[in-house]
């Protein structure tokens, strides 16, 4: 059993660095390779993993992840498989789901939470679920002692930041820019401001996602955030250079968060 998310962030804080969180969707390019790539991330120094559940209508995702989840679904990736992936990686590092809401609603929030807990998962990021609509999920997550992780954006008012802080556990996901997932030449300069504003409303760790794609960016963002979240860049590495590509990029990112 790996550390809990709060223990992970405490450790990273004591090491005076940000945590590295990596995302990959289950079933791209195949179930086995996606899990092998997640395990390669573990070996290369990732601190936590976001296991992505492929969904037909990923409104928060840019082209790289869209194409990958599309391929995963066409290849037969099912929600049930995602629990298997959690089971494979959760003994090594804290593991959470990244899932749009409808697959969870359809599965049944209670059963979903119970199965996630049984697989060793610690929580879930739900990019299209706002606290106001999250009643059934908050209840189910609390019953299984899971961390519900919500997203804040540069457009969030302070009142909304406080609201998200109140219901989140584990960490708060700060979307660095107004936009969808994808690699960017620069992480938006609104990210730091958002982290500062979020910290004023909650004591939870604040992790920055959207656009982080290499060690240099990880180093820059890691100076002000509690964690950095990398998705599209890892998916692209897997697509272009396979599991080894994921390993190399993860090493670069892991070195980045340790750079002073």
């Amino acid at each position: 059993m790996s550390a809990r998310l709060d223990e992970l962030f405490a450790r990273c804080r004591s090491e005076n660095r940000a945590a590295l969180i990596g995302y990959l969707p289950v079933g791209f390019p195949s179930y086995d390779v996606s899990v092998a790539a997640m395990l390669a991330m573990v070996e290369a120094g990732v601190d936590a993993i976001e296991v992505g559940i492929p969904y037909t209508d990923p409104g928060m995702d840019g082209p790289v992840i869209q194409v990958a989840v599309d391929a995963a679904l066409r290849g037969g990736s099912r929600v049930a498989h995602a629990f298997g992936a959690v089971q494979a990686v959760s003994p090594h590092v804290p593991t959470v789901f990244m899932s749009y809401w409808n697959p969870i609603e359809k599965y049944g929030p209670k059963r979903f939470a119970a199965d996630l807990r049984a697989a060793g998962g610690q929580g879930a990021i739900t990019p299209d679920l706002i606290p106001e609509e999250a009643g059934s999920w908050l209840e189910a997550a609390a019953a299984e002692d899971l961390d519900p992780i919500f997203v804040v954006a540069p457009s969030s008012t302070d009142a909304r930041l406080a609201g998200v802080g109140n219901v989140s556990r584990g960490f708060v996901y700060a979307a660095s820019t107004m936009g969808v997932t994808g690699t960017r030449a620069q992480v938006g300069d609104r990210a730091e401001e958002l982290v500062t504003r979020t910290r004023a409303q909650t004591d939870l760790p604040v992790c920055v996602g959207l656009g982080v794609s290499n060690g240099d960016q990880a180093a820059v963002v890691g100076r002000y955030a509690d964690g950095i979240i990398v998705g599209s860049a890892l998916v692209r590495a897997l697509q272009d250079d396979g599991v080894d590509g994921v390993r190399r990029l993860t090493e670069d990112l892991a070195a980045g968060v340790r750079r002073r």
């Binding site: 299209d128 706002i130 609509e133 969030s156 998200v164 979307a175």
Partner: peptide, 21 residues
């Protein structure tokens, strides 16, 4: 007031859109 027609409707969108909505 929150846009619900009984159990239906609501807002299932990224937080980034809430301010605009």
């Amino acid at each position: 007031i929150s846009g619900h027609f009984g159990p239906y409707g609501g807002r299932f969108v990224p937080e980034a859109l809430i301010a605009a909505l």
